[in-house]
Computed example of a mutant assay.
Amino acid sequence: MGEQGPRRHLTVHLGGDAARAIDELRAVWDPVMRGVAPAHVTVVYPEETVDAELLLERAAHAADGTAAFDIRLGAFGCEDEGCGGVFVMVEDLAGGLETLRDRLLLPPQRFSGYPFHATVAHPRTSPSPSACWTQLRGRGMDLSFTVRELLWTITDASTHTVLERFALTGRPEATRVALAGAMVMDHGRVLLGLRQPDRASFPSVWDLPGGHVEPRESPRQALRRELREELGIEATLAEPWRRLVDDDLQIELSLWLIRRWRGELSNRAPHEHQRLRWLTANDLGSLPLAHPIYLPLLRDALAT
């Protein structure tokens, strides 16, 4: 829109009461945008897309394995007191949007981490976004919407076209166990934990911090929780790093590189790990690891 050239996004188009409520506001504060693009939530921005063909391949696979999920429109927000735009924040009720985005934006794509939102007044098309913010400050919505498909779209100053649709056709019951793990890095070393010998699965091997993704959690949310419980830290999770799928073990493991955290790192879950150890690349070859792919992944992480 505005003077920009065509822009391609992966989006969720809103419908029902959610779309009507946003369009009523846009009719007042941004009729240009209302006339071009339907009310939507962007999942992947053009600036994040390095390889569009790979992105669409991932979108197809992710949609096949993802069931429909609910989101909710919440509080109004803005950038630069409205001058940078006004939007309604999207509450990701079961972590569905975040899970999709982290799968789609694995390398080589770029990850911005921009909060999910639906725009009410865009800074390039609204005649007065600051006045819009003055009107909406402190207010919000409480409207839910069920996400059933991802859309690959192209938008320019006057048109918005859906290029491809990806229906969320996954079954609610997952066939694989979802896990989230961390490569916690510090000065050329990575942190591993030695699992207790009485563990029901993978006893007496060295494993990554992390664990199971609980219902209504995204892997990103699960890893933050697990790192608090296991290590006592509040970790900074930036872009997703790797996703490991093992159909023999029926697991899918989402991995992050963790280089920054708050808190004093210690073994807060001794019932899971006998001890923690910082390891260099030279230390890894002689250790029994929880999965054979860990060795090349750990070496790759240490070389990054």
Rank of each mutant, 00 (worst) to 15 (best):
N267W: 01
Y294P: 04
G85C: 09
T304V: 13
H187P: 00
P115A: 08
G285I: 00
D207T: 15
G95A: 14
E81C: 04
W241D: 14
F116G: 15
N267I: 05
E272Y: 12
D248E: 03
T153Q: 02
R20K: 06
L100Q: 04
A281Y: 05
R137S: 14
L10I: 13
R228Y: 04
F111G: 01
T49E: 05
E239L: 13
D246N: 07
W206H: 03
D102A: 03
E229Q: 08
R103L: 15
L25D: 00
R277T: 04
A167C: 10
G170A: 07
I251H: 12
R242G: 07
R195E: 05
A67S: 15
H271L: 06
I293Q: 11
T155P: 01
H117G: 10
L276A: 11
A94T: 15
V147Q: 10
V147K: 13
G35R: 13
L93Q: 08
N267G: 05
E53C: 01
M89Y: 06
Q196T: 12
M33V: 11
G181R: 15
G82I: 12
S286V: 10
D30R: 00
D51M: 05
P108H: 03
L253T: 12
A174P: 03
A200N: 10
S130P: 14
L136E: 06
P219A: 10
L295I: 04
V43K: 02
L73T: 08
V213S: 02
M141Q: 12
R243Y: 04
E79T: 02
H271Q: 15
A59Y: 00
T66G: 00
R148E: 14
G263E: 14
L54N: 00
E230H: 01
P123K: 09
S266I: 04
L106A: 02
L208T: 08
R224V: 09
A94G: 13
C78Y: 00
L287G: 05
P209M: 08
D142C: 06
D246S: 04
R58K: 05
A174F: 09
E81D: 08
H291I: 04
P203S: 12
Q196W: 01
D64T: 06
R242E: 15
R268P: 05
D17L: 06
A238K: 07
P31Q: 10
I22T: 04
A281G: 01
R268N: 04
E149C: 06
L237R: 15
E226K: 14
R220T: 07
T280F: 02
A67F: 09
R72K: 07
M185Y: 10
G211C: 13
A180C: 14
A19I: 02
R7P: 05
E214S: 15
P31F: 09
T155F: 03
